[in-house]
Design a binder for these strands. Structure first.
Lengths: 355, 355
DNA sequence: CCTTTAAGGGCAACCGATTGCATTTCTCAC
DNA sequence: GTGAGAAATGCAATCGGTTGCCCTTAAAGG
């Protein structure tokens, strides 16, 4: 039946404020104001508009509003990868705050790839986000692409993997302190030859962790042995290689502090494969408190970074700057969170005092 | 010096095609066409426009284009959480394909929360995404909110956690087959009392895994014992609890197949704590091939879901439907991928034939 | 009864890019 | 020299809301 209809064009759901206006015999401006709860519109009209909107199944076109307002109510997040509990949690924290303020969030991943990171910045900019929150990729050494948002008046805030080469607000944890605590703990457990896995990259977090390691050794009058510091990409496989390298040394280390949990996990695998007992023969500690660190046997001592909190704080800082933006040139703020040492089986020899 | 400048208004970088047009003494339409490489524009003009655009640091306003075209070139992804290697990888696969086609991707997380999921759908819709790719939250039992995109002509494709209550294309893996293979493998290893951790939720993936478990038992003439099937939320802690429950049984199981890797990991912890040897005393297997499954000791037997591939295929399916959308009502397609059994130490007793 | 004023809306420009339909300019052929 | 046609642009409407400013109406004040 009715096989000759005027073409079943997809019901292009084109309900606009004009349709509502027409239905009520008023103008679009009134509808717009009514929907935005503008005091110039009477309650009667507002109710009528709301009702009609519901009836027609009206869906506001934010793109039009964004065009007119110059605001999209979207903020872009750039992270190396979402596939890391740390970053995922930070995003969650940011989202929490942003949603409260009616902002949506676009997540994009740079995969620690410099080119992709540059592209991503441009992509977000061209998507007209209202601001960007980012954590810099491992391989990034030139930060010019992060200057572009600011040139355009798009606020930028960095977290965790930051740089001082840019004049932006940043939120990070005290990597130095975290590392210092780990090493001090290992020393208290009786370790004297403590190895360290670090990264060759120009990322401040790794430099800080190395610095914490060095200072802790120094403060406890333990001589520094360069052969115990191994640079790698800090992934599982790198940890394995690094550990193998360490075990070839004449004087084996009695502990390893890896600047990443993955590296520590690789070290644990190799240690066990070689018949070494953890922590008796060799104590291990990582950094980051990735969930899997509690799954291993023994569970891994590590440093918690309060990722959720970091996300929240980053977002709050962002929105603070955000309001300001325009008149007073906001002074970039640097927020540093205190990390927490999580002591688990991989470093607990039970000899030293459990501090 | 120069302390009395005309107010250092933020350089509102308002370069539009009109500015370019003015500079070159042509019109905006010509500039637009030149930028879009329209054949009606001469090469000379095109080059001039490109040059001027660069000089002025022109940045196209996609919002304006989106408004005009009715396309945002953004597709929304809804996942329960990005903090799971599986979902993160799928997203990566989707992104890969989408970026090739010049689409950007918005990720939003439902956190397995029904209300948040509903909100998210609306948020994406009002952000005017061109399409939605989603994986349904665990607690979702009503799917009406997923009908809205379709009503508006916004294509929707589901992956992994799907439902047949909706007429949409979906991509999933053969959970039944994966589970069947796992259980068959355990049987071949000599296990006879095989427990199963499943979820009480109405999510098809868990039902399918259960079905695979049951059928494998039946096909190998192993009697089904209801007390060996334990329902929980399948997280680490749940796995621990479930395992404790199992160990209280008069007839302990000699194997556990958990529908999630987390559950299996919890079981392993408890087993080891109770002095049981894995896999000698009890074999274990999970599902999902989360990265941490290779970190445990022994490493966990599990099922790989080809998440990256799933993402790519989902995106391809999406864009296929996408083109069609409008005229011919696209017939929803269902793509089922074959999973792969990953055999590791937690189930290898070395007795049965390594098939 | 006339004026003032506030309330409630309407008008129309605007945001920036896109595009169907002219219009202008050349080139070529007759 | 003139008309046909192609080539290269210009004009103006459009996408859907938003907003400054103007207009109408009616209650309030004198």
């Amino acid at each position: 039946m009715k096989s000759n209809e005027p073409a079943p064009v997809a019901p292009r759901n084109k309900v606009t404020i004009h349709d509502i206006a027409e239905k009520l015999n008023i103008t679009a401006s009134t509808v717009s104001r009514a929907l935005n709860d503008n005091p110039r519109i009477s309650d009667v009209t507002k109710k009528a508009v709301l009702k009609a909107a519901k009836q027609l199944n009206y869906q506001p076109n934010n793109i039009a509003a964004a065009l007119r307002n110059g605001k999209s109510y979207i903020i872009g997040i750039i992270i190396p990868t979402a596939d890391r509990s740390f970053f995922a949690s930070v995003v969650r924290g940011i989202e929490e705050i942003a949603n409260k303020l009616n902002y949506k969030v676009i997540i994009s991943q740079s995969y620690d790839n410099y080119d992709k990171e540059v592209q991503t910045v441009d992509a977000l900019l061209s998507a007209r986000v209202d601001g960007i929150i980012a954590s810099i990729g491992k391989n990034t050494e030139n930060f010019d692409h992060f200057k572009r948002p600011q040139e355009k008046g798009i606020p930028l805030v960095l977290f965790d993997r930051t740089t001082d080469d840019l004049e932006v607000s940043q939120v990070m944890i005290d990597d130095y302190l975290g590392a210092y605590k780990v090493v001090e703990h290992l020393i208290q457990q009786g370790c004297r030859r403590i190895a360290h896995f670090t990264s060759p990259k120009k990322v401040s977090i790794f430099k800080e962790r190395l610095r914490g390691y060095l200072d802790a050794l120094r403060d406890h009058e333990i001589p520094f042995d360069e052969s115990l510091v191994i640079k790698s990409n800090l992934q599982l496989e790198d940890g394995r290689e690094s550990m193998k390298q360490l075990l070839k040394l004449e004087q084996r280390p009695d502990a390893v502090f890896s600047a990443s949990d993955y590296g520590a996990m690789g070290a644990m695998q190799v240690a066990k494969e070689q018949g070494l007992k953890v922590p008796q023969d060799i104590a291990l500690a990582g950094f980051g408190n990735e969930p899997f660190t509690s799954f291993s046997d023994p569970a891994l001592t590590t440093v918690d970074q309060f990722s959720l909190t970091m996300g929240r704080i980053t977002a709050e800082l962002f929105f603070e700057n955000f309001k300001q933006s325009g008149d007073n040139k906001l002074v970039p703020q640097k927020t540093v969170l205190k990390p927490e040492l999580i002591i688990r089986g991989s470093s607990l020899k039970g000899t030293g005092p459990k501090k």
